[in-house]
Design a protein around this nucleic acid. Sequence first.
DNA 1: GCAATCTTTTTTGTATGCAAAATGAATTTA
DNA 2: TAAATTCATTTTGCATACAAAAAAGATTGC
Lengths: 235, 235
Amino acid sequence: MTPATHPAPANVTSLAEHRLLHEAVIDRLRDLIVTGELAPEAKLNERVLAERLGTSRTPLREAIKFLASEGLVELVPNRGAMVAPLKPEKMREVFVVLGALEALAGELACRNASEADIADIRALHYHMLAHHARGELAPYFRYNQQIHQRILDCAGNATLSQTWRALNAHVRRARYMANLSRERWDQAVHEHEEMLDALSRRDGAKLQVLLRDHLANKLVLVIEALGGFAPKENA
Amino acid sequence: MTPATHPAPANVTSLAEHRLLHEAVIDRLRDLIVTGELAPEAKLNERVLAERLGTSRTPLREAIKFLASEGLVELVPNRGAMVAPLKPEKMREVFVVLGALEALAGELACRNASEADIADIRALHYHMLAHHARGELAPYFRYNQQIHQRILDCAGNATLSQTWRALNAHVRRARYMANLSRERWDQAVHEHEEMLDALSRRDGAKLQVLLRDHLANKLVLVIEALGGFAPKENA
DNA sequence: GCAATCTTTTTTGTATGCAAAATGAATTTA
DNA sequence: TAAATTCATTTTGCATACAAAAAAGATTGC
């Protein structure tokens, strides 16, 4: 379902599973940026990075260009590249666009998802609940992301998925900074309950609203974590 | 307003205006693909293309990776790259996503556009009308694209603009094939009248619907031109 | 001591070289 | 003749080499 150039968006550790080196470098580098191991605005020294990734500069530079198109790195003429800054204003923009994309996905998913799809998402939801109950943040996030991903997939629009994935990388990056209060965490889980409910009833209009609001709430957290100001009324 | 990596999306002929070669190659190659000079599914022979663009393989390969992320070229492991196919199903996907993005842009533009912005768009609109009246297709399209671009800009969300721009490249590519009947052309112009009207009244809800429908109608043309079937009910 | 200029070093941007894979042609075999 | 195999050519993928630009450091002048 995903294009050949994004074979494994998740945590890629081994380079061996990839046929091509530069594709492995793309995934590895994206991972370094998303996890924050390469901090925002960090300069990407090609020699150093290539050595760290066990490759030469050529595939690395190709990967950098690819990620520049995704917006995760910024190219500075004659000065190489740097990890894209993580500015509140940029996050606000990304969340607004993601809101529209997820709303669309929700509507389409309500039409196109099979009952088996919904059952799968429900299963993921309960896994997520379990980790929430135990206060296990990392696995919670993993299932959380998977749920959103599955909803996108159910929309049956690969281009939508692809676009969402690229923008969502920015959100995942910010997520490592936002520290979830128990209160806000409970609320997020509650929102997920409602989303699953709307999907089950195939109430596309409702799901749209829920997804948009869910993202809007997430944005507030991110903005707080980044030390920015409250978002404008339109989230 | 646009990122540094997309300095001139229009017809770039001279490479000299660019500081860096690989950025020039990106724009030049994108142009070749969008105009159809490089046909869909055409194989990108690195040696030949590099010579044609007056460069070596290295910057070309970097440009190819960049455009692969935009979806205009597809990478085939150990077989290089090819121009992305122009399939009806893919177009359907792109139009659906673009519909959501333009709807969002329309809503935001109604809120954020200054009166001067709207006046500018109105001016573009009348230019477009003039070319429509004279049956001049190419300039008509140019102003048409500019209007949509300006609406996006007025939304005040650079990420939205960027995302739209990348997807819109696919549409521009298809446009060169769709031959506009006079009847359909008149209708498109009428739709633009309504859009301008809604924007002037800052009726975001209305503009959203108009933009979505406008795109849906355009999709029908593209699908016809590609020899595909009618779109599904959700456009 | 500080600023400005020159020099050295590092880093980027591009071209080229080389090995592995793929393509295509020629030959063999059924 | 058609299929399969082998061999030659081409093409891709990666590494390295080299030149121009930028950054860092040393030197001079005030």
